[in-house]
Design a protein around this nucleic acid. Structure first.
Lengths: 226, 226
DNA sequence: AATTAGTAATGTTTATTATACAATATATGT
DNA sequence: ACATATATTGTATAATAAACATTACTAATT
């Protein structure tokens, strides 16, 4: 019984989300060991004795993407005895939202972004973990504009709306979206305009430093679900 | 390094909430071993190899209260290296809402209900865990009438309002509360009345079986916070 | 210089929901 | 019958959400 307790292993796994190619993407690594050799998985690692769970998650995140100081939130702890086919591994899952302009990921055959709606077969219960992270991201967006964590520092309202639509998986009305967005605390209008498009340039906006967990207008209408 | 990993221990700890004496109460056990001998703690136990985290939490809950099939939700996983003064124990915290009429707790010097606003000194980080469970309960209440999990099977609207006020820690308007409550899916008016009071009896209501996570009107106005 | 094309920007009306607020009804005990 | 304590009910106003189409601007083309 005592030995039994001692054989649990605990890991952190991180769903790292960003916007790329007009879609939500998740960073996956290809496993080069059994079990699930050659299957894709979300990045993870063992929790070290000296670090807490947040620190372990941040360490793994930095190892993979070289970013720090981004939105990182504990998601859920998955502990099914059969989730790992060999040993008993309990994983504390996190999810991170990062700006594609901040990422320094050297992608390769073993590390790549995948569109969340076109996922390859995944190791362990990682499909479930990713799906839950998308649900949680939607819930967060209902409360506050976390989407700005995915947008570049300067962005147009159209880009912002697209990010919302991607996450919420529904179309939003442009006028109502803009009406709401301008009442959002922290959003600042810049005297700069987008250049890339060959059509009418759009005004750029930025978010002033928002303390997450600070008072915020809630944003996209909450689904009436429980 | 490999040994290091193997020395984590993982437990579940459960914040068990109920309404007693017109207040929210949490079930605490007095520790009879070091560390924190003679301090109060929330019930918990090691996760067994054969069970998942939910099952471990349900087992601990049943051991302490002899109730099953109640509202039980994973809260958060606490893994600070210093939360346990001796070894490295990561705990997956749950919270449970139970009806006082369903409880069969034999309270004693070592097992007792405590008003959440008058907590004794607690072992480990259990104070933080309880506070977080109260926050989560409020969040749940903003989405759906989980408070009925705390109410007896048949209850008056006044009792329901008091439960809400206790959890939300604010006064609610009686007329607005009732207007809202009657639009709540699942609430059923009974042709029975309370007897205990020596004044005008109040109509009793009940909740028809609600699937949690089913479609529900959200209920108490969400605080505009993030 | 005028035209075209593509995206950006904007306002009003209606419906729904939330809030504020006080008088009447009913059972019990005296 | 009267006093008392609690239960029950409605309306007016404010705030928020939702539905909906046209004009403005710039760059590229002719």
């Amino acid at each position: 019984m005592f030995n039994e307790i001692k054989t649990h292993e605990i890991t952190v796994d991180i769903v790292i989300l960003t916007i790329k190619n007009d879609a939500l993407n998740v960073l996956l690594v290809k496993r080069n060991n059994e079990p699930f050799k050659d299957k894709w998985a979300i990045p993870g690692g063992y929790v070290r004795m000296s670090e807490n769970l947040d620190e372990a998650a941040m360490r793994v995140l930095k190892e993979k993407t070289n970013v720090e100081n981004i939105y990182l939130e504990q998601l859920y702890t998955f502990g099914d005895p059969l989730r790992h086919p060999v040993s008993r591994v309990i994983t504390c899952a996190y999810f991170a939202l990062i700006r594609s302009e901040d990422v320094e990921v050297v992608t390769s055959d073993d590390l790549a972004w995948h569109n969340v709606s076109e996922l390859p077969p995944l190791a362990f219960d990682h499909k479930e973990i990713i799906e839950y992270s998308l649900k949680r991201t939607r819930e967060r967006l209902e409360m506050c504009p976390v989407a700005y964590q995915l947008l570049n520092e300067k962005f147009t309202l159209t880009e912002m709306q697209k990010a919302y639509e991607m996450i919420m998986e529904k179309k939003l009305d442009k006028r109502n979206f803009r009406k709401k967005v301008v009442t959002t605390e922290g959003l600042r209008e810049l005297n700069e305009f987008s250049k890339s498009s060959s059509k009418r340039p759009a005004r750029l906006y930025t978010f002033d430093n928002i303390k997450l967990n600070s008072k915020r207008a809630h944003f996209i209408k909450k689904e009436k679900q429980c």
